[in-house]
Amino acid sequence: MTMHLKLRVWRQPGPTAAGRFVAYDAPDLSADMSFLEMLDVVNERLIEQGEAPIAFDHDCREGICGSCGLMINGVAHGPMRGTATCQLHLRSFRDGQEVVIEPWRAKAFPVVRDLVVDRSGLDRIIAAGGYISARTGGVPDANAVLVAKDDADSAMDAAACIGCGACVAACPNASASLFAAAKIAHLGLLPQGQPERAKRVLRMVSQMDMEAFGNCTNIGECQEACPKLISIDVIARMNRDFLRASLLGREERVGSSGEG
């Protein structure tokens, strides 16, 4: 069965250029196509007409690399829950439906071109403290530190984050709280993550604020948009860690952190 969609796509030639919506007719599609394969088809036709194809980020196309991410009819990653754009299929749409496609919109995610945005702010949040400082070599045997299965499972739930930025895109405040909190929960739930736990949360939260993400108002749009369905419970955990570190933590001594 072939399908037909009416697209309205955000086109913006460059970071400083003005953008606008452009309508494209997309006939002869298959319901078994993925959303990105539909865009491939549209792009092939555009190139054949000598026009610039619609730029969008994508890579693995199996929902794990976190490259893709589009606002589809007002919903981050489109209508299917727990699914990244690349794993969304056209069977989630009606024949003849209008589909509005926009980039993630946030001050911290400036548009690079069309639907491509710059999400490097997320990398800088991780660089601020989203790690365990374990130099290569010189670590104990893997079974020397036991981790209760429940803790390992909860850590894995949080670690499933693919860094796509849908949480920021779906949040009316453009907050990156779910992203930062997922990493803080992942590392904070493990015994290996304890020594740096206070420093980690303070630094990551401070970086998140510096990147011009908005604040969390606990409304839960992020967990609904998350392709890995990470729960906002991790945000409560981040707040708790932050509060504890702020009230009880010692001031970082200048030069004592070692890891810059």
């Binding site: 893997a142 209760a148 390992a152």
Partner: peptide, 19 residues
Amino acid sequence: IDQCVAQGVPFAREYSGYL
């Protein structure tokens, strides 16, 4: 495996806490 566990890779565990 030792290195990855030290970094906080959440490998699957038995109920005992062992890998």
